[in-house]
Design a protein around this nucleic acid. Structure first.
Length: 272
DNA sequence: AGTGCGACCCGAACGC
DNA sequence: TGCGTTCGGGTCGCAC
């Protein structure tokens, strides 16, 4: 599933491929992905061009003339660049055609991804963007900030790490990896964490996310990177999808449990 | 306000 | 083999 590192990888690759190309057609095969009015969506895009691609948390933000196109990949959203004469594949739901004979195709097996248009001046007030918390690589993500956010949270720290309003961009894979690196049990009540433990979470999150971005993200069963880019970070995962395998630190078996309805992998000896 | 859970989807994994 | 069932996972909306 695309988390912050995967979205950043997609952003970097797309920036090399689609900027400043004139959009000549938009074909919407599965309208529910688009939360804006469908006709307005087409009208705004056709004749327009992408000038830049930004990112906030897991949201990709395509800059148009007066609008931003927000795109969330959820679990399985991918973008492909193909020649316009190539046959449509199953699960290609949104086709944006450029004047140079290529397409940007949005592919989403589960149809969970979402897109919407906002006026540029409204971006910061858009609920999806304004609610995002601090990103792992943001210097203003401090232990004091985390401590305050966790103060009234009675839920497990694992669940709190998935809350995009606290830390923006972590998903199920990196939340497990961060807790392992920080040596914190995923079931600990968020409000019980000390400032020192919050510090360890931040240090681990920065390290893991930066390394994941440097490696093009993680390629696992449910998320094969698009655009021919294959991430390598799966080679560095310490706990995720490693149930029953030995912990690299203490050699005990990695456990898998459910936390807040989500699969959670951890080492019960290293993470207290 | 914080928390928990079903809904949204469909391919893969599983059970028989 | 082949069929039916269950599971997963980010986020939202709703109930408590």
């Amino acid at each position: 599933m695309p988390e912050i590192a995967e979205v950043e990888t997609v952003r970097n690759v797309l920036k090399q491929k689609i900027l400043h190309k004139k959009i000549i057609n938009v074909n919407i095969l599965y309208p529910r992905i688009i939360e804006s009015d469908i006709e307005e969506f087409k009208t705004v895009l056709v004749g327009n061009e992408f000038n830049d691609i930004l990112r906030v948390g897991k949201w990709l933000i395509f800059a148009l003339k007066d609008h931003y196109l927000l795109s969330h990949l959820r679990m399985e959203g991918k973008y492909f660049i193909k020649n316009s004469d190539e046959e449509l594949q199953k699960h290609e739901h949104i086709i944006i055609s450029f004047a140079d004979g290529t397409d940007l195709r949005y592919h989403d097996t589960r149809k969970f991804g979402r897109m919407k248009l906002v006026l540029k001046k409204d971006l910061k007030n858009t609920i999806e963007i304004s609610k995002q918390g601090k990103e792992p690589m943001d210097d203003s993500l401090t232990s004091t900030y985390l401590l305050a956010k966790f103060k009234n949270k009675r839920l497990p720290i694992k669940t709190a790490l998935l809350d995009q309003e606290i830390i923006s961009g972590l998903g199920n894979i990196y939340a497990d990896e961060v807790l392992f690196a920080a040596k914190i049990n995923p079931l600990r009540v968020a409000a019980s964490l000390t400032q020192e433990e919050c510090e360890r979470i931040i240090i681990s999150a920065k390290e893991i996310i930066l390394k994941a971005i440097a490696n093009g993200g993680t390629t696992i069963k449910s998320y094969t990177s698009s655009l021919g880019v294959t991430g390598n970070y799966q080679n560095y995962l310490k706990v995720h999808k490693r149930e029953g395998k030995p912990c690299e630190v203490c050699n005990n078996k990695i456990k898998r449990i459910k936390v807040g309805g989500r699969s959670t992998y951890f080492c019960e000896y290293c993470q207290k």
